[in-house]
């Protein structure tokens, strides 16, 4: 401790520098001069991260196996039970041809809805309260900011920044993310918001029309934004698990369990070209068979006063998901 005056001077200078950086970067928004620094970071750390991921990937896999064991065990039991059921069905010849054909056409029409994607691997994940990841594809593979990222299960997020060989994705669970969503099989639209780290990996869905009734079990697909940036239409987002009733609120909020497992993201796809026409619900996985004991459906639940069902709106007014500001 020889030189406290010098230490304090350095401390003061560095604190001022960081405050100045915060101010400049905040005021500049997306065009701040400090973005050059990020580009620099991408160029340097991107390749290192890719290398490091290649090394540690097997270790992470082992860890996942370890922590996933209890749930894997549950799944095995469930699958075994399912297996038995299927076998019985097969034996009694219940699986008729018509249903098989239906299923096939559903699967065929989905074909992931005709999105053109660039496959990518998650190489790192964000600090602190951010739900962001970086991918190992960048502008050299044709990725641009504000492209949709999805996995085999559904919506993952959108690309926020792109480097030459890496890109940063804001996940749909991030608290700063909001996606336009549409209730399955009705035209009702709303906004899907991330709950951040606090909410684990759940999402919130707010319907714009407060008179429409939502039910647990209904599913949500993305609504699509103008020019398909940042979100292309028709990507499955999740299933409503419960409805939150907040008194005095104008809109109703539902808690949504996403189709994507956000804690174990690995291979994802970046949509570089959207489908020619809106795939609507066709990409949703086939709904659980109606024979399963559903809690006595209230008389088929027609959405009240829904005249629009005959003529689905051609245009997508895009509740353009806000970027950070």
């Amino acid at each position: 401790m020889k030189d406290t005056r010098r230490t304090r001077a350095v401390l003061g200078v560095l604190l001022l520098v960081s405050l100045a950086m915060i101010t400049v970067d905040y005021r500049g928004g997306d065009h701040s001069p400090l973005r050059v620094l990020r580009g620099f970071g991408e160029a340097i750390f991107g390749p290192i991260e890719q290398g490091a991921t290649a090394v540690v990937h097997p270790i992470a896999g082992a860890f996942h196996t370890f922590t996933g064991a209890p749930s894997a065990h549950r799944r095995i039991t469930r699958l075994e039970r399912e297996n038995q059921q299927l076998r019985r069905q097969l034996r009694t010849g219940q699986l008729d041809k018509r249903r098989a054909g239906e299923l096939e056409s559903l699967l065929g029409s989905s074909g992931l809805g005709g999105y053109r994607i660039v496959p990518a691997e998650v190489i790192s994940s964000g600090e602190g309260m951010e739900n962001t990841v970086s991918l190992d594809v960048g502008s050299r593979s044709g990725v641009q900011p504000n492209m949709t990222v999805l996995s085999g299960d559904g919506l993952v997020g959108r690309v926020t920044r792109v480097g030459p060989t890496t890109s940063t994705v804001m996940l749909a669970t991030d608290a700063a993310s909001s996606v336009g969503g549409r209730l399955e099989s009705s035209n009702e639209i709303g906004i899907v918001q991330g709950a951040g780290r606090h909410g684990g990996s759940s999402l919130k869905f707010q319907l714009l029309d407060s008179t429409v009734v939502m039910e647990p079990g209904q599913r949500i697909v993305s609504f699509g934004s103008e020019d398909d940036r940042p979100y292309v239409p028709g990507v499955p987002i999740g299933t409503i698990t419960r409805i939150e009733r907040t008194s005095g609120s104008l809109t109703r909020t539902a808690v949504v369990r996403p189709f994507v497992h956000f804690t174990s993201l690995d291979v994802v796809g970046v949509v570089v070209a959207a489908p020619k026409r809106n795939p609507r619900d066709s990409v949703l996985p086939p709904s659980p068979s109606p024979s399963t004991p559903t809690p006595t459906p209230t008389p088929s639940q027609p959405p009240p006063a829904q005249a629009g069902s005959s003529a689905p709106p051609k245009s997508r007014p895009a509740p353009s998901p806000t970027s950070r500001g």
């Binding site: 970071g41 991408e42 991260e49 962001t132 950070r324």
Partner: peptide, 20 residues
């Protein structure tokens, strides 16, 4: 460095201030 490493998506300088 934590402010500019790829998946970071916050205002540059926040971690610099705090860690300093």
């Amino acid at each position: 460095a934590a402010d500019i490493i790829p998946p970071a998506d916050h205002t540059i300088g926040r971690y610099a201030l705090v860690f300093c």
